[in-house]
């Protein structure tokens, strides 16, 4: 066996360069395989829906499906609005509005949970911020919890008439999605 003299510098550089290339290539190959699990073009395209609110009477609520999630739309009574407005901020578990249309540090006052001029409409993603169940309180016969809003049946989180968490394990108020009044009683969510 003829063992030739080593050229350590060149060989080390070569091994290093080749290994680096192979490693970077391997890492870049992972990208498509991770990316494929994200929402596809079809899911992204269906990301907004339009809802006509005109059939929903005062005191009634409807649930619509948006991006696979239930969206609660409640036509609040004057009394419910008044109760929600009267709550002092210090009574809230989560003091932020959680409204996608507002800055993150906006406070959870009742007006910040709705749209100006449309305060009778409360529109929220109907998913408990604890572990993702759908709270009760949409149907007429449902228990609405201790605060007249919603009650999550899974672990007993109570939400008030502005969808704010008041009692129970949930950490945050129900989320308000991006929506707009397109015309009259027609809204576009997303």
């Amino acid at each position: 066996m003829a063992i030739e003299a080593e050229e350590p510098d060149r060989r080390d550089f070569l091994v290093l360069a080749a290994s680096a290339f192979a490693a970077v290539g391997g890492a870049m190959t992972l990208w498509p395989f991770i990316q494929q699990m994200n929402p596809d073009a079809g899911a992204q395209a269906l990301a907004s829906i339009e809802v006509d609110l005109s059939p929903v009477k005062v005191g009634q609520a409807i649930t619509v499906l948006w991006r696979g999630k239930p969206v609660f739309i409640r036509h609040r009574t004057e009394e419910e609005i008044a109760v929600a407005k009267a709550v002092p901020m210090k009574d809230l578990i989560d003091e932020y509005a959680r409204n996608a249309a507002l800055p993150e540090d906006a406070l959870a006052t009742d007006p910040n949970r709705t749209k100006d001029g449309h305060e009778n409409w409360l529109i929220m993603v109907g998913i408990c911020t604890h572990l993702g169940c759908v709270p009760k309180g949409q149907a007429q016969g449902d228990s609405k919890g201790d605060f007249g809003g919603w009650l999550c049946p899974c672990h007993g989180s109570h939400y008030d008439t502005a969808g704010r968490i008041r009692k129970g394990p949930a950490p945050r108020n129900l989320e308000v999605p991006v929506y707009n009044f397109v015309s009259g009683s027609l809204i576009k969510i997303g």
């Binding site: 494929q36 699990m37 596809d40 073009a41 079809g42």
Partner: peptide, 25 residues
């Protein structure tokens, strides 16, 4: 297999969805 649907009605459509809509599908 995460995107494919093995049914006579859906299989062909799901492959087309993979080709067109799925990221890097």
């Amino acid at each position: 297999a995460m995107h494919y649907q093995p049914s006579g009605e859906m299989a062909f459509d799901s492959v087309e969805r993979i080709r067109r809509d799925v990221n890097f599908g």
